[in-house]
Every structure is written in C-alpha cells, then in structure tokens.
Design a protein around this nucleic acid. Structure first.
Lengths: 119, 119
DNA sequence: TGAACAGGTTACCAAAAGGTAAACTTCTTT
DNA sequence: AAAGAAGTTTACCTTTTGGTAACCTGTTCA
C-alpha cells in the first residue's frame, strides 16, 4: 500500500479547521468568486442563521484561512476572500471531492436529491 | 487559480464521513497496520471511552470505510480493517496532511507539544 | 465455584454546535 | 423625525457529540 504518508497530527489540524456545518459551502463560493460580501454569502447559502455564518467566518479568519476586509463606507461593506493558506487547500479539497465522486457517488447523489426535495 | 474543481456536495459527503473526534487516529492506525482488534485500538488510543470508540467504528462501518470481522473463538476476537473505499481515501488524507505541514506547521507542532505535556 | 477476558450495552450527564428572534450602530435617504 | 441597510451582538433554546461507570455474555482456567 502506498499513500501511508500521513500522521494523525496534521490530519487532525486540517480536519479541525474544516469542521463546521457550512464551511465547505463557504470555501466553495470563495474558491469560485474571489471575494464576497457578508450579506451576499448569507443570501446565497440556503438557510444559515446570520449568527452562525458569522461564527464560521470568524473561526476561519482565526485559522487564517480567509481574510476579512472592512470598508468604512456607509452602509459598511465587509469583504471576505481566501488567504494564501486558504488557497493552498485547493488540491486537498479537490482530492476529497474526487474521492467522494469515485467512491461514494451514491451518497453524493443522495445528498443532491435531498436538497432538491427540501429546497 | 487552478484547483477549483470541487463542488460542495462531494466535499460535504467526504467531510461528514471524516467528522468525529477519533476518526483521524483510527484511520491512521488502520492505514499503518492492516487490521487491528477492538481492544488493541482501544489501548493504543490515549483516552477514548469504549462506548465512543465503538460508536465511531460503527459509523465508519456504516459508511463502508472499514470492515468488521468477528471470529467466534473464545474469548471472541473482532478485527477491523480498511475497505476499498477506505483505502481509496489515502491520497486525499495525504494531501490534507501535506497541507497541514506546509501551511499550518505552527498548529501541528503546537498540537504535538500539547500531547507531550498532557500525556 | 468463581475470577478473568473480549466485545458490547445501558443509563445518565456535560459540553459543544447550531438555530431563532430581536436589538444595536452608524450613517443615508425620504 | 422616521425608515432602511449592513454588519454585528445578545439572550435563549435544542440537538449532537463525547464522556463516566457499571453491567452483561459466554467460555476458559485456577
């Protein structure tokens, strides 16, 4: 067997930073759109509570995955975008996505259908 | 930017299957040792409660990441090993590990030190 | 007879994660 | 003066996750 080159320390650190119900979607959008405003994210993500979205963004900022930029215009505008550290996650996230589609395709399509039904 | 080839559905499925306090360690040991008995895992992982370890193993079995094999000897022996789906996670886990060591090295070493101190 | 062992269950509890709804701030627009 | 907008905070509640400790099952061995 190859691919045994992981220890659980690094893995734990990475998974901790990714754990949170809405973080995959947040990352997804930031990877595809460069930068987004708070309300834009809030509107685009199905049913997050403002408070929860904010908590997630704060955590991700604390983990230095994203960068928060506040423009002191009025009404204030706050932009979020990926940091270098965040961008560097790309390959790993692609690898997970690839695995899900190759080896857990049933669960993926199941999830998509559940979303169609409920949304 | 490259590496944008992920949607959040597959990513969600993958991260859900990996979420659980002790799953990284469990995977780590199964990747390195082929198969392990329940008690062996229980003893090797610092401070898991039997109940919790069992819950994690059951979830992973339900997700078809691992395979449970019971031998009806006495005292009974139960072996856990990776399924094909589980083994296929290797590259993605390596990628996460790699990322953690390259881009979040400080958190990784911090975690290692905390373990030394408390264990 | 009864302790010991491996794997598992039960009842019960504490902490963390996620959610709802309302209010606050600071300015602009009407 | 009143209403509105963007981002944030507060108080409160429910669900999920992780944890403790005792107990059960069958067989082997002293």
């Amino acid at each position: 067997m190859q691919y045994q080159q992981f220890k659980h320390c690094g893995l734990n650190v990475a998974l901790n930073m990714l754990s949170g119900k809405w973080k995959p979607i947040i990352l997804y959008h930031l990877f595809h759109q460069q930068e987004m405003r708070f309300t834009e994210l809030w509107r685009i993500i199905p049913k997050v509570a403002k408070k929860v979205l904010l908590e997630h963004l704060k955590q991700m900022e604390a983990h230095e995955l994203i960068i928060r930029e506040e423009k002191h215009t009025f009404p204030p505008e706050v932009y979020y975008r990926l940091s270098e550290r965040g961008k560097a996650l790309g390959p790993a996230l692609s690898a997970l996505e690839l695995w899900a589609n190759e080896y857990a395709a049933d669960e993926v399509t199941e999830l998509k259908q559940r979303k169609k039904v409920t949304a």
